[in-house]
Amino acid sequence: MIKKHNKAKAHKFGMVIDLDKCTGCGSCMVACMSENNVPFKENETNKKDSITWMHVYRLTNGKSFPDTEICYIPRPCMHCGGKGDHGHSPCVSVCPATATDYDYTTGIVSQIYTRCFGCRYCMAACPYHARYFNWWDPIWPSGMEKTLSPDVSPRMRGVVEKCSFCFHRYQAAKDTAYFEEREDITEDEYQTACAQACPANAIVFGDLNNSEHEVYKLVKPDPYHGGRPKEPKAFRLLERLGTNPKVYYISEREWVRKAGDNYVKGKEKDHKKHNTE
């Protein structure tokens, strides 16, 4: 029975965010922080040293009124599959102490706080700024430590942390499946906190290997190209770096899709072809 579990087809959990639906309300950021015991400071003015596993960026098309358009991009950890989608994510391959690894059964990049010794090499490696350093020990307002989630261990000063795709929820869902003697979990049993909190339903979460799942239907990942979306409206951030993220974005607006990657001037057309072929 045990062996059967491990031979079950590997999952590849991923996320699809519809940027045309996102209003930039920040519910995902709040839900993430409370779900994952993310520490905060009394004064969060300096955004570059405060921790937000899920971070909403704001970008504009750079045009003046009345043509100005705004788009918000929520950015969790991309759980990159790395070059060739072999699991050598930019951060995993550089960690000197194996404090982060790529789980081939779920496609999730872990971060083990008690193993991390805070060299911050992974932060330098991540082009998405998805990794955060605990510059301070967490200080919870009195009484708040009783409201922390027991499913997620709080972090100490001096270690790196990042989004885990709410892995503890996957564990809990699997526990239920074991109890009910089921082989596997269903799509709705494992959802991240941000996906559930999004009032606009902009965030969809599921298994990219499962053609029944909504995420698969939305982007149609191409397994022969590291999961590159076959759906023309979908894109991934910094596709050209070869990081092969598992977070996809969808937008009808071309300038938004273009903002997902860098272009050498005069060669935009090449890239468009490359993106939609």
Binding site: Y102, D103, I108, S110, S164, F167
Partner: peptide, 8 residues
């Protein structure tokens, strides 16, 4: 097993 299998 991967780290997250037993670590949280």
């Amino acid at each position: 097993g991967a780290c997250f299998q037993c670590h949280k």
